[in-house]
Simulated assay, not measured.
Amino acid sequence: MRRRGILLLGGVLLPATARAMTPCEPGTRAGVLAELRFGLLLPNGDDVTDAQWRTFRSDILDPVLRSRITERDEPPVTRPRPQRIRAVFAEVRASWSPDAPPALPPEVQSVIRAWTARFPEAPVEARLLPVCIAVR
């Protein structure tokens, strides 16, 4: 079975095929990437503003994850109700097992708790991906 991975190159994410536990190509190394998806439309219909997002990023994301963060807005989701999503990718320390996905690292759990505290009931989800990361 093939897994889809992410290749991190100079802060730009490009799709790349990566298999867990398969050696990476020269110039890359094995890693684990956290993908966090934040819903930017609150249940009462208000938006998380760009200023609120920048504050969350500077107060929480950058200092807690302490690695290069790449973010992108995803196309709006219309079901079950309208939602704007911002996806964030950051390298994290985790041991990858082909038998079971690893537990979310404490720093990822901390980001999720901080988001929920600032924006109660706003959606947030996270998953870990095995990847080959460009060596700088």
Rank of each mutant, 00 (worst) to 15 (best):
T70P: 04
F38Q: 15
G11Y: 07
R37P: 04
P23F: 14
F38K: 15
L128Q: 03
T55M: 12
L41E: 15
R68F: 04
R54S: 09
D50V: 06
T28Q: 08
P130H: 08
V48S: 13
L104R: 03
T70Q: 03
F119T: 14
R37A: 14
E74D: 15
A51L: 09
D46I: 08
T78I: 14
V88G: 01
L7Y: 00
P123D: 02
G5P: 05
S95W: 01
L65I: 01
L104T: 03
G11Q: 07
T78D: 15
S95R: 02
L14N: 04
A100D: 07
T17K: 10
I69V: 07
V131K: 02
A90Q: 05
D46C: 08
R57I: 06
L128M: 04
P76I: 15
V48G: 09
S95K: 03
I60C: 11
I69S: 02
A30P: 10
L7E: 09
A30V: 05
I69Q: 04
D50E: 11
A126G: 03
V64T: 14
L65D: 04
A90S: 07
V32W: 14
R54M: 11
V88E: 04
R29H: 14
D62L: 11
A16M: 13
P63E: 09
T116A: 14
V108G: 05
P105K: 02
L33K: 11
A90N: 07
A30N: 05
V48T: 13
L13I: 05
A18I: 15
I60R: 08
P105Y: 00
G27H: 13
R4F: 00
R57A: 14
C132G: 03
T28E: 10
R3T: 06
A51E: 13
W53C: 01
Q109F: 01
T28D: 06
P43N: 11
S110P: 06
R66E: 00
R54Q: 13
D99H: 04
T49E: 10
R81L: 09
D73A: 14
R37H: 15
P23Y: 15
E25K: 12
W96M: 00
V131R: 02
V135G: 04
I6N: 00
F89W: 04
P80E: 15
A34K: 09
A134E: 04
A30W: 05
P101T: 07
R68I: 05
A100K: 09
V48Y: 08
L128C: 07
A90I: 07
P80L: 12
L40F: 09
R54C: 06
P106N: 06
R54F: 07
E107I: 04
T17E: 14
V92Q: 10
T22V: 15
A20D: 07
S97C: 01
F56C: 06
T22L: 13
T116R: 08
C24A: 15
A30F: 09
P102R: 00
T17A: 12
